[in-house]
Write a protein that binds this DNA or RNA. Structure first.
Length: 840
RNA sequence: GCGGGCGUGGUGGAAUUGGUAGACACGCCGGCCUUAGGAGCCGGUGGGCGAAAGCCCUUGGAGGUUCGAGUCCUCUCGCCCGCACCA
């Protein structure tokens, strides 16, 4: 035994230094001309591989230090990036930081350190650690969303949306976080009505805010999901969030007030069963309707208490229904009946029109309400299977035939009646077919300091005026007091706020709200394509080269918000002529969480495994391999220190055997020559190497990194077993292949091994190709079954005919024993696998 | 309630198209080497019966389709995730 010892602390920094010095992972844009020749050469790319690849992991929020989840995400992305490179593709694999936002600002409030300073420290820490992980990043394109050179273009995009009418201001009932003192997007409030950031109970306030018109894109956001290679559960979440419902808008008229009230319903077929009408407490007409009636005071009390309810209280479906009558009626447009108007908190202002027709016989909620307040319940749909069952349970929401409606509809199937009734409403001018979405417009303004300023000036004479492009960026002024006071801290920066109108030069005030950080991250992947451009957000030619992103990688927690917003931005920018594609991310991979002892890592539980400490102990290659080996990367994985040791042993054995073999060979063998005489163990080992090539290549394409690493482990196990019975050349070939295949997961150790064995750089080598002739075996083990049970195994030639296979099976000793005295009724032959004899 | 997913040895997991269940690893047991081992190497390891050959059982549970089911179908239990008074 020689004194070779696997020492990641020597190996890893050495290769990192080389990659940094040579800028190995940088790619330039072909449009600059530098690489124009390279693309035509094709670089030995296999047929069917596109010339370029954009591999992107979701950009990190730089807070403190990277955690184990980052390690997993970048281990996955880096494996894909390396694999694509070695398939001959030019790979864009950039890095940046989502550096605006509340955590940095709250930290500033606590410590007095300016967010710009604390963010810079975190970024330095992230960058240093990412380099210590050996991730193959093109650092020349690094960006930070809080940098004026970046947010200048965030502001430019905002103004493009503003000019197109896609950014607008309106007063609305909005979610307000009393602790963070800011407005939140609907998506940032959890189901129980808590602020996603700080957990405080969210309140509702009427405020004028900035919105982006994402609802205009609801249909396209839904439809285009069919064209992208995303996990089905993420697409489902987006579909549910968009919440498309088909139905009709039907007008109910209040004759006393002379006002028409449209409602949205998915069940116009039940219109004849509408026995009352309910408005949301927030509906602007509620108090006007109740005024002067005996119910005025009760209605006022009810609305006040409903508005003070939390979402949690109000959303509880088990709660007994509450409401009060308004003392008015509306006309049922099909029956002409006068039905009473009510106000109740089970109707939501933000969905549909804020008012509903109530059909207690065929809707559970309306039924509860009608039961509580003894309102009439009128069945208009009868189940077809039980037409005589007059006492059939109500509410009934299934299909059936119409009863108690109009003679022209009675007896019709309800689905047929639905369209017939809608056509009738349409002809009478009382309604029309309609589609409703759950999706709301995106509220993007925040009354906070550390965000991208909204580039608008408010002028007394000209109104809202966009800041001219040549005056961008509107830079964030430095302030001393970040404390939220219900208006943006920017409002206190008077020198900055007071400005002149770009149009009339008169006195004007700057908009003091900043943008939601999701705006910053909705376009960063475009900026990477042309990160250094200081005359435009991007050169369209640069986007043409890289976009859309070939493989996007990140956590499922962004399944709805970030991924929906980024898709919306692309579609809006495409409509404005700035990009030429509709979908930003062709393929998406969502990695699972890393837990410890079965639960989420957290400081309070004291179960945090820090990447820095694990790398200090076993090195980056081991940490990266372990996190990919522990299980399928889209599933949650529990961190185990014992498991890490196992992977470390594997890398040690691979490195040690390779170093010894390189010594034994007396020097590197360029080109990794395969052994020429292939027989016996030599052949067996070569076959194993080619089996591993085939296995790892397939596994990488389906993100099965755990089985890919297991295949290399098997190859190494064979190398160890056969080390003394094969030639040094044969052993070198197998070990070099192992290193080549494992390189995407353990780049430092594998670069080191490959150089020792061949003198060459593994990342410059084409991905190995399996030799078909070595994948086929001339003999294999034929499984012999009787009645589906394995009874024996015999050697069979690959070229044996089905008849010969049957004969072999029938001749197998243990098969004979089970055939004894039985009648053979059927023989199933699966060539290459098994023969099954069916006997009676 | 609606939608999606999962359930395999002591543990993490494998089985890609309906074709040998348990690859690979952890852990455990035994052995070698060692002054020592939290180093390294070799062997064993789903359960039951058996000296062995071998036989039986086994992928949450119950049925079904099939020559053959972890994989497909029906029902059922348990867990996880998303949405939820969305008209």
């Amino acid at each position: 035994m020689s004194d070779h010892r696997y020492d990641p602390h020597e190996i890893e920094p050495r290769w990192q230094a080389l990659w940094a010095a040579e800028r190995t992972w940088e790619v330039s844009n072909l449009t600059t001309g530098e690489h124009a020749l390279e693309v035509s050469a094709g670089g030995g790319r296999p047929v069917g591989e596109p010339p370029s690849s954009y591999v992107l992991e979701m950009l990190p929020y730089p807070s403190g230090e990277p955690h184990i989840g980052h390690l997993k995400c970048y281990a996955v992305g880096d494996a894909i990036a390396h694999f694509h490179r070695r398939l001959g593709r030019r790979v864009l694999h950039p890095m940046g930081y989502d550096s605006f936002g509340l955590p940095a600002e709250n930290h500033a409030i606590r410590t007095g350190v300016h967010p710009r300073v604390s963010i810079a420290e975190s970024i330095a820490s992230f960058q240093q650690q990412f380099r210590s992980w050996g991730i193959s990043i093109d650092w020349s394109r690094e960006l930070s969303t809080s940098d004026p050179s970046y947010y200048r273009w965030t502001q430019w995009i905002f103004l493009e949306l503003f000019r197109a009418g896609l950014a607008y201001r309106k007063e609305a009932a909005v979610k307000w976080c009393p602790k963070d003192q800011t407005v939140l997007a609907n998506e940032q409030v959890d189901a129980e009505g808590h602020c996603e950031r700080c957990g405080a109970l969210v309140e509702v306030r009427q405020l004028e805010q900035w919105f982006l018109r994402i609802t205009d894109y609801a249909e396209r956001l839904l439809g285009d999901l069919g064209e992208i290679d995303w996990p089905e559960h993420v697409k489902t979440m987006q579909r549910n969030w968009i919440g498309r419902s088909e139905g009709a808008e039907v007008t109910f008229r209040c004759e006393e007030m002379g006002v028409d009230y449209p409602v949205f319903t998915t069940r116009p077929d039940t219109l004849f069963g509408a026995t009352f009408f309910v408005m949301a407490p927030e509906h602007p007409d509620v108090m006007r309707l109740a005024a002067g009636t005996e119910h005025e005071q009760a209605a006022r009390d009810y609305v006040n208490s409903a508005l003070n309810e939390t979402n949690e209280e109000r959303g509880n479906t088990d709660k007994v229904k509450t409401g009060v009558p308004l003392g008015r009626t509306v006309t049922n447009p099909v029956s002409g009946e006068q039905i009473p108007m009510w106000v109740a908190d089970y109707v939501l202002m933000e969905y549909g029109t804020g008012a509903i027709m109530a059909v207690p016989a065929h809707d559970e909620r309306d039924h509860d309400f009608a039961t509580t307040f003894e309102l009439p319940i009128k069945r208009v749909i009868e189940p077809i299977d039980a037409p005589d069952d007059e006492d059939g349970a109500l509410p009934y929401s299934g299909d059936g035939r119409l009863v108690n409606s109009d003679p022209q509809f009675d007896g019709m199937g309800n689905r047929e009646a639905l369209s017939a009734i809608v056509s009738w409403l349409d002809r009478e001018g009382k309604g029309h077919a309609s589609v409703n979405y759950r999706l709301r417009d995106w509220l993007i303004s925040r009354q906070r300091y550390w965000g991208c300023p909204i580039p608008i000036v408010h002028c007394e004479r000209c109104g809202m005026v966009p800041v001219p492009e040549d005056q961008l960026p509107v830079e964030l002024p430095d302030i001393d007091d970040y404390l939220p006071k219900g208006r943006s801290p920017l409002a206190a920066a008077e020198d900055w706020v007071n400005t002149s109108c770009p149009d009339c030069d008169g006195p004007a005030l700057r908009e003091t709200d900043t943008m939601d950080t999701f705006v910053d991250s909705s376009w960063y992947f475009l900026r990477y394509c042309d990160a250094g451009n200081d005359s435009a957000a991007w050169d369209p030619a640069a986007l043409r080269e890289w976009m859309p992103v070939d493989q996007y990688i990140g956590g499922v927690e962004h399944a709805i918000l970030h991924l929906m917003y980024a898709r919306f931005f692309c579609k809006a920018l495409a409509d404005l002529g700035h990009v030429e594609f509709q979908e930003p991310f062709r393929a998406l991979f969502t990695q699972g969480m890393v837990t410890k002892d079965g639960s989420k890592m957290s400081k309070s539980k004291g179960n945090v495994v820090s990447p820095a400490s694990i790398i200090e102990r076993v090195g980056a290659d081991t940490a990266r391999c372990y996190i990919l080996f522990v299980g399928p990367p889209d599933q949650d994985a529990d961190w185990s220190d014992d498991g890490v040791e196992g992977v470390h042993r594997f890398l040690s054995r691979l490195w040690r055997l390779s170093a010894e073999t390189a010594d034994r060979a007396g020097g590197p063998s360029p080109g990794l020559p395969a052994p020429t005489t292939l027989e016996g163990d030599e052949l067996e080992l070569a076959r194993k190497a080619h089996w591993a090539i085939e296995k790892v290549s397939g596994d990488l394409r389906r993100f099965a990194f755990n089985t890919a690493i297991a295949a290399v482990m098997e190859l190494l196990n064979d190398c160890s077993r056969l080390r003394d019975s094969v030639s040094t050349e044969g052993l070198s070939y197998a070990l070099g292949t192992a290193a080549s295949l494992l390189f995407p997961f353990a780049p430092h150790a594998c670069a080191d091994i490959y150089e020792r064995l061949t003198g060459e750089r593994v990342w410059e080598q084409a991905w190995p190709q399996a030799d078909e002739s070595l994948l086929e075996r001339d003999v294999y083990e034929l499984v012999c079954q009787v009645n589906g049970k394995v009874r024996d195994r015999v050697q069979a030639g690959s070229d044996a005919t089905p008849e010969q296979l049957k004969d072999l099976c029938r001749a197998a000793p243990n098969v004979i024993a089970h055939l004894d005295g039985k009648e053979l009724v059927k023989e199933i032959v699966v060539p290459g696998k098994l023969v099954n004899l069916v006997v009676r």
